[in-house]
Amino acid sequence: MPSPSPLRALFVINSLVGGGAERVFTTLVEQLSRRPEDIAITVALLDNEAEEAYRLPAGIPIERLNTRGGLLRSITQTRKLVRRLRPDVTLSFLTRANVAAIVALRGTGAPAVISERVNTTAHLRTGRLAFLSRLLIRNTYPTARQIIAVSQGVASTLESDFDVEPQRISVIYNPVDVDGIRDLAARDPAFAVTRADFVTMGRLVDNKNTALAIRALAQARTGGNLIVLGEGPLREDLGALAASLGLADRVRFAGFIANPHAVLARAGCYLLTSNAEGFPNAMMEAMAVGLPVVATDCPSGPAEILQVELDGAPHAFGAGGALVAMDDDAAMARCMTELIGPRRETFSAAAVRRAAAFSVESAVERFRAALMDAARADAGLRPAAEPVRS
């Protein structure tokens, strides 16, 4: 009896330029491709970028589209690709790729599985196109075969604000490759770091609110420095803020470095200052190397990870660190002072234990099952093959 053919899966993402979603996407492709008898993966990159932060495994077919960030071009080019490849299922990451995959698959009978990486309501609260983006999501996401949310907070938002049926939503936390992270952490750092130093990491944009870390450092009763890992349009403004607070020599803007884990492992505390997250990858990677964290109670993820709620208080201590009210520099400063002090090792050990709960193996197997289940549920609904027109 011949072996069944592997599931033909098209994985879609905007690009691999950099970021937490792109890192998780690459990890999934690498892990799932180890069993090609189960799933045969083709990757579609909507934007053909000159530089990429992550490399896909050798042998994975890659379709490089050239949509230049346009939604309509993303939809039409993904539609052409779907008609040519005829996948059994798609898995997409990030909003534009999600919308493109859902629309491109309409009328094909193939199911779209999408992964929502951010708290959609918080992420699209402001901005020139925020209303139109929310309307677009409300008219597409509910028709996806399954939506994989990165946290319970993201899942709840999809249900309450975007009319997605709860049975279409599942929560799979981002995988944390603890062993791989620790291997990288053991290497020499790009520059000297001490246990008195604080680290924050992310793109320098309004949503990441790096200014909060700088203001909190000015109030914290500690002599450590702040290391800022990341690039972005607010770099000059943040440098000016540090200078205005007399912190020009205590805030180091290190930019993007190839191995941030070696820096994280030698620092004293990690700061997450965001106004909105889906699931904070960098925070989990910091915890994996034993770094206590101070995180804002933003939607969504930090409270779930630290297993604590504020309940009206300005701060609360949880599993591996402290949760603080959003944009509260005084509360963050108090917790920075606490976590860098005598109790640091206790919080460090708790951070390591908590990170271990988010294993790569568990997340990968749940993604594999989601793809298999979606394809089986839609088996028999596929229309007869239509001729492919050039």
Rank of each mutant, 00 (worst) to 15 (best):
L241Y: 05
I181A: 04
R203D: 10
R195A: 11
V228M: 07
E159T: 12
G180I: 08
R168S: 12
L204A: 06
G202L: 02
A265L: 03
R221M: 02
A190I: 05
R168G: 09
A196K: 15
P260G: 00
I214R: 04
A243M: 08
Y173D: 14
A243G: 14
D188S: 14
L264R: 07
I181M: 05
V171D: 14
G239S: 05
P189I: 02
F162A: 15
R195D: 06
F191T: 06
N207Y: 10
L184F: 08
G246W: 12
L264W: 00
D249P: 06
D163A: 12
V251N: 05
E165I: 10
R252Q: 11
N209C: 11
H261E: 07
P233M: 07
N207W: 04
R235A: 03
T194Q: 13
D177N: 13
T273Y: 01
I214M: 11
A216K: 07
P280K: 02
A276D: 04
A262H: 05
A196E: 15
Q167G: 06
L234N: 03
G232V: 02
F256G: 10
A276I: 08
C269L: 15
N174K: 11
N281C: 09
R221I: 00
N207C: 14
G239Y: 02
G223R: 10
L229H: 05
R252M: 09
L212E: 05
D179A: 15
A213T: 03
A196N: 12
S160Y: 05
M201L: 11
V199L: 01
G255K: 14
A185F: 04
F162M: 14
L264H: 03
L229W: 00
D249Y: 09
F256A: 11
C269I: 11
P166W: 13
T194M: 10
A196P: 01
D206M: 15
P260S: 02
D188G: 01
P189S: 06
K208I: 14
A242M: 04
A218T: 01
F198A: 12
E231Q: 04
